[in-house]
């Protein structure tokens, strides 16, 4: 069966254990919201799944559609279909969005896109995300506003069409109109490509557009509660404190 599984995962950063045995299953086409207070380990978990070398997996496994990818490098995981939308994407000066994406897209494809086909595809995806066409000439994330960075992340997602997308606080820094546009962009890939979504968020807002099938609460490196979309609503009314106390 197709799924992204993390099994009893333990993750260390600079010698400190942050993730202390997490087991989760993410399914194609489903939205899985991962919530929790600041410092609970959400971003650490996302980075560890993507394969950041600084985040050391000391125990446990990551299985992608039945294949063990625990020891694979980030670029291999990306090629297998994992995508991370960064909370704070790196700024790469001197490299235009267009050039970078052409390299990334062609790198993933067996048959390379011609320059014209690539640009048509990019234009189409940018229009869907209501991005100015001149944006593709700008250097990747360099001098972007918070909102522009998030949109550029989702543009990459739309171009790369991963099997599973980790969205790390993609809604933060976006105004309400932008959240809607970005969420629609994500939804489109989910529906068309049965992309599984792991949505890391503090807020309820984006969940109005991306309805979670499952909600997991991470606290101090462990999953303390799981449920359906009603759990997210409960957090909104009671806060994390109410849930943690129980």
């Amino acid at each position: 069966m197709k799924k992204l599984e993390i099994i009893d995962l333990h993750v260390e950063v600079n010698g400190t254990e942050i993730i202390k045995g997490v087991t989760l299953t993410f399914l194609p086409g489903k939205v899985h919201a991962l919530m929790g207070p600041n410092g609970s380990g959400k971003s650490t978990l996302a980075n560890a799944i993507m394969g950041h070398p600084k985040y050391k997996i000391t125990k446990g496994r990551i299985m992608l559609d039945g294949k063990d990818i625990t020891k694979e490098k980030a670029n291999v995981r990306a090629k297998e279909g994992i995508f991370l939308s960064f909370q704070y994407p790196a700024e790469i000066t001197g490299v235009t969005i267009s050039n970078f994406l052409r390299t990334a897209v062609n790198n993933k494809r067996e048959k390379k896109l011609s320059i014209i086909d690539f640009h048509n595809l990019l234009k189409e995806k940018m229009a869907e995300l209501k991005m100015d066409p001149s944006f593709n000439k700008r250097y990747l994330n360099a001098g972007f506003s918070g909102g522009e960075k998030k949109r550029a992340e989702i543009l990459q997602l739309a171009m790369l069409e991963p099997k599973y997308a980790l969205l790390d606080e993609t809604d933060s820094g976006l105004d309400i109109d932008s959240i809607k546009i970005v969420a629609e962009g994500i939804e489109k890939v989910r529906k068309q490509k049965a992309m599984g979504i792991i949505l890391i968020t503090h807020y309820q807002r984006i969940l109005e557009y991306l309805t979670p099938d499952e909600v997991s609460i991470l606290y101090k490196g462990k999953i303390i509660q799981q449920g359906g979309k009603e759990l997210a609503k409960k957090i909104e009314s009671e806060g994390f404190e109410g849930i943690i106390k129980k």
Partner: peptide, 29 residues
Amino acid sequence: DPEKIFYLTSRGIDEESAQKIIIAGFVEP
């Protein structure tokens, strides 16, 4: 910056190519 390398590798680009993309970007201006 290793964060830049990770960012590019997370898009499927191998480490060596990522490094070259960053150098090309450094020279481009």
